[in-house]
Design a protein around this nucleic acid. Structure first.
Lengths: 246, 246
DNA sequence: CACGATTATATGTCTAGACATATAAGTCAA
DNA sequence: TTGACTTATATGTCTAGACATATAATCGTG
């Protein structure tokens, strides 16, 4: 067909056709030229405009629908979606990676590590009912020898039995878990507190200074993996999140 | 072809074939049966296993690749990706919607609203160099008559001229912007501070109590829209984020 | 053994059809 | 006017091919 030779033109644009279609539409939406609720051209119209088959425009539109930029309705057409909420992609890499990425020297101290049968408090924190074995860890992360965060963690050994063999004096539990327990899900709760005596000492800040607290509860396939609470000195540490309207 | 009749079986599974393929592979990855680095079957093998055309398995694999669950390499095959970071989808709806969703009564008070030519401090905060007009707003949100957050916002009128006509005594600026300036991008910085005199009074908390601070810088197509700083009482408010390993 | 050229192969994109399906819109009767 | 039925249509999924392209593997040569 003729299109093949069109694509074979030496000065042809680099991106493939469906990507160009997607980008064209995306641009019109993002600039506001096509506001929320606007019906974008039907597939057969786009076929004519771009001189391509339906599968090609369908691929472009499907990806836009997957990204929630448009909504597709049978018989009615495709419409620019109204933004309902802001959703952030907040990268919380493991702390070692985070510090290393900042070009700072990572330091780690294990404060306490003990294996025990889950207490009722442990079970409540992990959200499990059976009293299996757990590992409780307290440790501290530092950047350029300045305290960066203190960590208080519980690992459910019935979900991650391999953790019994890990050496948490050498490797931070967050890094170990990230590399040994892939594809977890988690729920984070972020709050602010003032430093108590114990936290202040560990972070080398004043009692009463603000701290950012992250509680992370992690599971894999409905099984609890770990629960962790991180204290960051609030005046120096910041979580940065890039958002995308949607 | 025979597949059509297979799909037409009255007791056939509801989801379409490519979705079934995608789910099958996703399940194996999420359960750890196929660990990171594992090469998943070639397209022609999946074609044989599911008795379908290459486009169908390709669609399933493409979506998995888009979701960063697998990595596809020409000539080599498709591989389960190693999780590098945790990415959170942190929903920060506009505050009115957030409070309403909690089933609480939303209250709003405009504290101060003035229009002015951007000062150098304003320009620095918005990240613009030209001295256009801006709107500076201070307001407070409450839930069930309890202070929920105080807001300090700057809107760039050269990007959003319609904002000049908005009535921010009636409608919170966040809600107004969300509905009138779709498809923005934003960067959030979350930190913790202790309440100063002014903030303590506005939030009805003690001086020195912890506060969660969110700085949000919003733009659309390379143009600054607004910069806002929100103070939340840290002991009562929590940001919750669902995460997905990846 | 090192290194450049060749080849085989898996993915990337695309076509020109097809039938399925949800549903907006129109039609008709009560 | 209202509700039930029919129809038209846009999307959803799928096929059986095709050529393009990046690159792992092989081969041959110095």
């Amino acid at each position: 067909m003729s299109l093949a030779s069109d694509r074979a033109k030496p000065n042809a644009a680099k991106p493939t056709l469906y990507k160009r279609i997607r980008l064209d539409i995306e641009t019109r939406i993002l600039t506001g030229e096509w506001p929320p609720g606007h019906r974008i051209p039907f597939e057969h119209q786009l076929m004519a405009r771009y001189r391509c088959s339906r599968m090609t425009v369908n691929k472009a539109l499907s990806e836009l629908a997957q990204a929630d930029l448009i909504e597709r309705r049978r018989r009615a057409g495709s419409f620019v979606r109204r933004p309902q909420h802001m959703s952030a992609v907040l990268k919380i890499a493991d702390i070692r990676a985070e510090i290393t990425a900042l070009g700072r020297a990572y330091g780690y101290q294990l404060i306490d590590c003990r294996r025990r049968t889950a207490t009722s408090a442990d079970r409540a924190r992990l959200g499990v009912s059976t009293a299996g074995k757990v590992i409780a860890i307290a440790c501290r992360h530092s950047a350029d020898n300045v305290p960066f965060a203190v960590e208080d963690r519980l690992i459910d050994l019935s979900t991650v039995p391999e953790a019994a063999k890990a050496d948490f004096a050498r490797e931070p539990p967050g890094s170990w878990l990230l590399h040994h327990v892939p594809w977890t899900e988690a729920e984070h709760t972020i709050s602010a507190v003032v430093a108590d005596d114990h936290t202040a000492k560990a972070l080398d800040i004043a009692v009463g200074a603000p701290c950012l607290v992250i509680d992370r509860y992690t599971w894999r396939s409905a099984r609890t993996v770990t629960a962790v609470r991180l204290h960051y000195p609030g005046e120096t540490h910041r979580l940065v999140a890039r958002f995308k309207g949607g």
